[in-house]
Every structure is written in structure tokens, then in C-alpha cells.
């Protein structure tokens, strides 16, 4: 089973926790005409990691790297959830039963459904199990 089409390139950017850093990232993406589709910030004392799904990840990487940001790609998957009570439980239960660990996740409520972005320890297996159990994954194409 080929999980590649469901593997989405997230950009992860290191940022010192001080005023203006997020604006610098967002401004640079705007300059390149890059659209942010989903977004989260994880913060610790003094620094944070900005994670985002964008429509042009390679262009975003190049731009942010060129202005001195530390940036990397991370493979994540995007699961469509039923936007009703229990929607999140269904997905979490599948991964839990298969022993797949969620490193972190964030969600957005889109036009058609709620979407859960997942960073898991075993991407291929997660894709396979979710599909096998009737779940719906967004393909990478849908983010470009």
C-alpha cells in the first residue's frame, strides 16, 4: 500500500519567543504568495516551534531558510473527521488500538469537515490502518 499520496509535508520553524518573530514568518510567506492552510504553535519557555501546512512547502522552505530561519519538513497526515460529537474519538481509538503514538496534533474546521493533522511515530502504518477502518484521509494534492 502506498502511503505517499497521503503524506503531507508540514513546515516546522524554530522561533525564539520574542515579539516580531511570527510576524517575520507570516510576512515572508505573504511576500511569496504562499497560503497557510493549517497552523499551530508549540511553545516552551523562551522558544517555540511554528508548524504549518502551506500550499507551496518547497517555496516556503527556501524563503524562510534564506532569511535565516531554522526550518525542516515533517511528514504528517490529515484525517477527515465527522464534525459531530465523537468524531475525534473515532480516530483516536483507531490509532490507540493499533499502538500508534500521536506525537502531536492540531485541528481545523474546514468547509466540508473537521480536519485533524497528526504527527505520528509510524506514518505508513497509521495511513494503512485508518483507511482499512473506513477513515478518510486528505491527500497531499488537496493542500497544493
Amino acid at each position: 500500500m502506498d502511503a505517499t499520496q497521503y503524506t503531507i509535508k508540514q513546515i516546522s520553524v524554530f522561533s525564539e519567543n520574542k515579539p516580531g518573530r511570527l510576524a517575520a514568518i507570516a510576512g515572508a510567506l505573504q511576500d511569496e504568495g504562499i497560503n497557510i492552510l493549517a497552523f499551530s504553535i508549540a511553545e516552551a519557555n523562551g522558544f517555540g516551534v511554528v508548524r504549518a501546512l502551506v500550499d507551496k512547502p518547497d517555496a516556503a522552505y527556501k524563503k524562510l531558510n534564506s532569511i535565516g530561519f531554522m526550518i525542516s519538513f515533517t511528514d504528517v497526515i490529515a484525517v477527515k473527521m465527522r464534525d459531530v460529537p465523537g468524531g475525534l474519538f473515532e480516530m483516536a481509538a483507531i490509532l490507540s488500538e493499533e499502538g500508534i503514538n500521536i506525537e502531536y496534533s492540531y485541528a481545523y474546521s474546514g468547509r466540508e469537515a473537521a480536519v485533524l493533522i497528526l504527527r505520528v511515530d509510524r506514518v505508513n502504518e497509521a495511513v494503512e490502518k485508518i483507511l482499512a477502518r473506513g477513515g478518510t484521509l486528505l491527500s497531499a494534492d488537496e493542500f497544493s
Partner: peptide
Amino acid sequence: ELNPEAFSDKINDIL
């Protein structure tokens, strides 16, 4: 300064 090769998207790795 963190070396770029050591950067991880996971906060715990950096901590």
C-alpha cells in the same frame, strides 16, 4: 545556538 541539523519539530527534543 541550536545547530540546524539538531532542530526537531518536537518541542521535547529541543528541551
